[in-house]
Amino acid sequence: MNKFFSTCAAALVITSALSAGAVFAQQNKKFPVIPLTTGMHVIQAEVVATEAERQQGLMFREHMAQNEGMVFLFGAPAGVCMWMKNTLIPLSVAFIDDDGKIVNIENMKPQTLESHCSKKPVRYALEMNEGWFKQKNIKPGSMIDGLPKGR
């Protein structure tokens, strides 16, 4: 192999490694965290507000701590559906209206494309480890405090 092709091959290997590293870093990116409360329970919720952030969500994460979650912000109340494409951990999602009241809660299996939808227009969705809401006796009608307003 001549020197030119050796240099090109080395550059391709380095570029591929850097690209793979960038994809891994993006997949494991942590978003800004805010505290949310429901009753006496405090949730450390990563916030995703843009379309790209909402699409990334919790994809490729291998675990999430007990009282950690992710809150999805939508610009205005809307019918919202979630799925679990490339999501490795089982989750429960609470769909939350403009006032912070939980409309409905759905359990979601990892790596599925099944849609889980709000029963009415909502401004927020909060994903937690599967069963977290049930373990804490949090049900539709419960309030979530600390949600960002006016996004």
Results as ranks from 00 to 15, higher is better:
Asp145Thr: 14
Leu73Glu: 04
Asn137Ser: 15
Leu12Arg: 09
Val80Phe: 00
Met59Ile: 01
Lys136Glu: 01
Ile14Arg: 08
Pro140Ile: 03
Leu91Pro: 00
Lys85Asn: 11
Lys109Ile: 13
Thr112Met: 02
Val47Arg: 04
Pro77Lys: 05
Lys120Gly: 02
Thr50Leu: 09
Leu126Gly: 02
Pro77Glu: 01
Met64Ile: 04
Met64Ala: 08
Met40Gly: 14
Gly75Ala: 12
Thr50Trp: 07
Glu130Phe: 03
Gly79Met: 15
Ala10Thr: 12
Leu126Ala: 06
Glu62Thr: 14
Arg54Met: 06
Ile138Leu: 13
Arg151Cys: 12
Gln66Pro: 09
Asn2Glu: 10
Pro148Lys: 11
Gly75Cys: 08
Leu113Trp: 11
Glu68Thr: 10
Met82Thr: 04
Glu130Ile: 07
Pro148Val: 02
Pro35Leu: 10
Met128Tyr: 05
Lys120Ser: 12
Gly131Trp: 01
Thr37Ile: 05
Pro90His: 05
Val71Thr: 01
Ser19Glu: 07
Ala11Asp: 00
Gln55Lys: 14
Asn107Met: 08
Ser142Gly: 09
Ala11Ile: 06
Val13Trp: 02
Leu88Gly: 03
Lys149Glu: 14
Thr112Glu: 13
Phe95Pro: 00
Gln26Trp: 13
Lys119Ile: 10
Phe95Asn: 00
Phe4Trp: 13
Leu113Lys: 10
Lys136Val: 07
Trp83Ile: 07
Lys109Arg: 09
Cys8Tyr: 11
Ala10Met: 13
Ile96Lys: 05
Ile14Lys: 13
Glu68Asn: 15
Lys3Asp: 15
Thr7Gln: 14
Ala9Leu: 15
Ala65Tyr: 02
Lys85Tyr: 08
